[in-house]
Design a protein around this nucleic acid. Structure first.
Lengths: 224, 224, 224, 224
DNA sequence: CATGAATGAGTATTCATTCAT
DNA sequence: AATGAATGAATACTCATTCAT
């Protein structure tokens, strides 16, 4: 495992170096792309400009991606991964469906907040994303919806939630999370994420939680 | 009233003919553009294709617009005008703020439904719309928000609504109307507009209407 | 010849009316064209603008010319006709070759002055004129040169002119007449045509007239 | 002097290579453009054709110029630079104003001859040249005129030239130099530059040089 | 005859992508 | 691996000309 395996360790080391470089380059490119995409959109972001912004050459970019569209997908993938990682993690282990739903919504909003550009791009650049990319996004949304939907159905079963259509309701929650990115131009001056989440959670729970359980979840209603 | 009038009536007639032709051409272009824009987006919609789709020549299109972007504005303006026409009209004369809000929301959703493509475009093509166009859209949204906001404040004053932040709440209603366009791919299989409006109105009013007035507005809660 | 021939006279009258209208229209178009051509050049003069400037419709212009180029040719033809009319007329009947040359040069310069735009166009828009048009212009110039050349050869034969190459010399005189149009931007502030002609005639005759005849043509040398 | 210099020398080398390539490309484009412009004029010279003629791609052309018009300016600038370089150099150090004028005129004609196409373009494509380009050309001409004008005034002061208007006279000399390009179609069959210069210098000096100095400058009068 | 709306061929310019160094 | 010059397909827009009214 040590010196005898010198060659292997050497190439392992080289592999590691290579991998590290790839990661580093990707990071440069992705962060530059995110910046430019949010400022100018996909069409107006020129590969030339991206190279300048990332501090690499045009050729180097094409060493890491095959197509301009790939860059967009990469940025959008980033937020997808975050959703997949953060939202279930935040909900996991919470028995009470109301609290679980609240935790999920809160986590979702926080991911949106930390990837606002990407969240916006998913709406704005649909037409620039390939069919597969688009379908992956839709799939993800259906997935997230089902997390919310599960909570809602559990809650209804326990009588904690009033009777609603789980599909629209969960889609609505997703929408309200995205809203933080979509309407940021309007909301930004009045709220920060925390406050936004509080307000929307209050709005949601007041609607969903059945009259005889509202008292229990009073803390979710608080608006400041 | 004869000779002088004859000429005047003639030129009036010609003016009318001209105006009618302009309207007709604009209609052709507008509807073809709406179709192509929703299928392919702004960038991929070629003027050549638009001309073919509209059944006119490229030159003719440029007799009615100055820039490709103008075509996008045309489509977006169309929905803006509809909002401005329909929403206030639907709310006018309704004293009760709860009913007025419901009427406004319903009207807004119906406009979205009848201009689904354009409503979507307003989100997708932001980056292709000129600063002025973008500002007009934002202005419109602020305007609509304030209609809703007024109802909410009236309702709170009368004790019919619980205490909420009018800004987020009105923005949320707008968002939920837009949602019908944004999430149509998901909602379409399960609902039609009517049902969608009913569900969302139920969701909204359950949250907003204060406990001691819920009975009065029971008809808004109905979900089928 | 009188009343019995009523029909014929009628159609003759109509012909005359038609001819008069044609002339009138042509006049409108030509003067508008001359104005626009001198301001913007051939390429930038749009038929649409010409129609507006001439106060007629686009269609009407095409009733009188077949091609945009025809308009240019018409304007240039105008000056050609003037040359053909004025220059020989001014020289005719003058026996003395020195005086004849002076009269021809003077007449040429005056035609250039009264058709400055057209004279300029003949140089600027060569590339917009068809081969035939171009050849007609060159033919005309050769023609004019030969008028001058004849005088020069006569003068040399009579010992009034020194020995020179008639071809270059006549071409030079033509050039100096055109110069009034070509360098008008520079000369305009300092001279009027009369003075310009005087100066150039002085320059020319001082060079051409042989020493022992200079006294006789002293009036041509005067510079003010 | 070693490591730091190594890098510096490297980048110097790369800079030099780059500069050389730019020069080479510019040369390709310039000469191809000159050829096409003289054949077809500015409007009819297509960028596509220019690329083919220059043996590069369309894109490459646009790496070196911003606009089609820039190509025209490139060609015209080339002759302007030649005038500025050659004419003063030829006149410099010559005390005698008559000889200096002759040297200047000769140099000017030779530049015209070696850039005949460009000299012609300056007249033909005025309307396609930007205001700045046009003004640069006029400025240059005024400059050249003043070189000639200075000689003429010196000569008059010394009694070597007769009294003339320096402005028209110098402009006339400039015109006669340009004439070699403008009337090349006519003069070409009869003269070469040398002979043309000789003839025109003879014409000019016979007119300008005062009677009692003509003997001294007899060599300028020679016509073959 | 006059009109002017409609036509559509023609072209400068852009920019993702490649590949020799 | 990295570079960036070269490539050329793709596309919005113009404007002379036509022809139905």
């Amino acid at each position: 495992m040590s010196q005898s395996d010198g060659t292997s360790r050497n190439s392992e080391g080289m592999e590691a170096v290579r991998a590290a470089r790839v990661e580093w380059r990707m990071g440069q490119i992705l962060s530059a792309a995110t910046r430019l995409l949010s400022q100018q959109g996909f069409q107006k972001m020129l590969i030339t400009d991206l190279a300048k912004e990332a501090g690499v050459s045009v050729g180097t970019i094409y060493q890491y991606v095959d197509t301009k569209e790939d860059i967009l997908l990469l940025v959008v993938n980033d937020i997808i991964e975050s959703y997949r990682r953060e939202v279930p993690a935040a909900m996991e282990g919470i028995e009470d469906p109301v609290e679980r739903l609240a935790a999920g919504f809160r986590a979702y909003c926080l991911v949106v907040d930390s990837h606002r550009t990407a969240a916006l791009l998913a709406y704005q650049e649909t037409k620039s994303i390939s069919r597969e990319g688009r379908e992956r996004l839709m799939q993800l949304e259906i997935e997230t919806n089902s997390y919310f939907s599960d909570c809602i159905q559990d809650g209804m079963r326990l009588g904690k939630f009033v009777q609603v259509e789980p599909a629209v309701t969960s889609a609505t929650l997703t929408m309200l999370a995205h809203m933080w990115a979509l309407k940021h131009w309007y909301l930004n001056s009045m709220f920060d994420v925390k406050l936004y989440i509080q307000n929307q959670l209050s709005f949601i729970t007041k609607s969903l939680v059945s009259a005889d359980h509202q008292q229990v979840y009073a803390h979710l209603f608080a608006t400041d």
